[in-house]
Simulated scan of single mutants.
Amino acid sequence: MAIIGEIIHTTTYRYAKPVTFGTHRAMFLPRRGASTRLLRWSAQTNLSCKVHWVTDSRSNTVTVIDIGEPGTELTFTFRVRGIYFGIKGLESFPLEARAEEVPVQYTPDEWTDLAGYLRPHADDPDGSHAAWTKSFVAGDQDQTADVLRRLLGSFRNEFNYRSRDAEGTQSPAETLRTKSGTCRDFAWLMIETLRRLGFAARFVSGYLYDSALDGGAVGMTGSGATHAWVQVFLPGAGWLDYDPTNSLSAGFDLIPVAIARHPGQAIPLAGSWLGDAGDYQGMSINVAVHKIGEMLDPSEG
């Protein structure tokens, strides 16, 4: 079964008096692939603008928006409708023998292709991250599935989700020290931990589909906003999704938009404005991801 869904992503910036705007770049369009078929999409603002589309070096779609007039409010409205194919309850996956234990044995070609996702990026000045990383392996080797399960469980049992207004992503050391953070913080800590264990891992920004919201119930952590999680490359299975914020993997829930080596390469919306520093009065973000229908997967017909 496939879900026909719609995403409406709105961001509004407010200012005390009219300011001028530089070019803005947005990442909101889900990545095309075997699991996603896009039907239509649009990018609009409340001010006059010119829009064009480019792809970056990682094949992410970037929307480039040039604002043509000043204003006291700038609103971006992104809409996407598409078909999403997923598998519920995917808890096991086939692995080649060389990927069944930690450390995973990548081939020379894989090392070349995955080099940017294997090397840790963040500093570990006091060694606390290295010590925490070692706690997930019983010895020199351990079962890959068990290590991933323990790592995912540690976020559920030891960390607290905490939203904040400040932009950017915490360092893994800060997230580990405070045992708290946003979805982007948790994803970045998990990625850097996996890299220290010898896994190729990358950052993913996108959307979280929560079926509970379709019925008006309380949603999962991260719904109603953009979301972030992790992909790990395991020979035999390929790139697999892990969401440390909600302990999710695969299924219909995670809709990828952008992949990156580090969070700074996958910012949902970024741009500039010109005015007095005190003019800025804040921003608001609203993301709605809804199922509007179902259809039979062609592979099942």
Rank of each mutant, 00 (worst) to 15 (best):
M1G: 11
M1F: 11
H9R: 07
T10D: 11
P18T: 09
V19Y: 02
T20C: 06
T20H: 11
T20A: 12
L29E: 05
R40G: 10
Q44P: 02
V51P: 04
T55K: 14
S57K: 07
R58K: 13
S59V: 10
N60H: 09
N60V: 06
T61N: 09
D66Q: 15
L74Y: 00
T75F: 01
I87R: 12
E91F: 12
E100W: 00
V104Y: 01
Q105F: 05
W111P: 00
W111T: 11
L114Q: 01
Y117H: 12
P125A: 07
P125H: 05
D126Q: 11
G127D: 04
Q141G: 01
D146H: 13
L152W: 02
L152S: 15
N157I: 08
N157G: 09
E158Y: 07
F159W: 06
S171I: 08
T175D: 07
C183G: 02
C183Q: 01
F186M: 09
A187N: 09
L194S: 00
R195H: 03
F199Q: 06
V204F: 06
Y209Q: 04
D210V: 06
S211V: 14
L213C: 07
A217I: 05
G219T: 09
M220L: 15
T221E: 12
T221Y: 01
A228L: 06
V232P: 03
F233D: 02
L234I: 07
P235W: 00
A237L: 05
L240T: 11
Y242V: 09
P244H: 10
S249P: 00
A260D: 00
A260N: 03
H262W: 10
P268T: 03
D276C: 04
A277R: 15
S284F: 06
N286T: 15
N286V: 13
I292P: 01
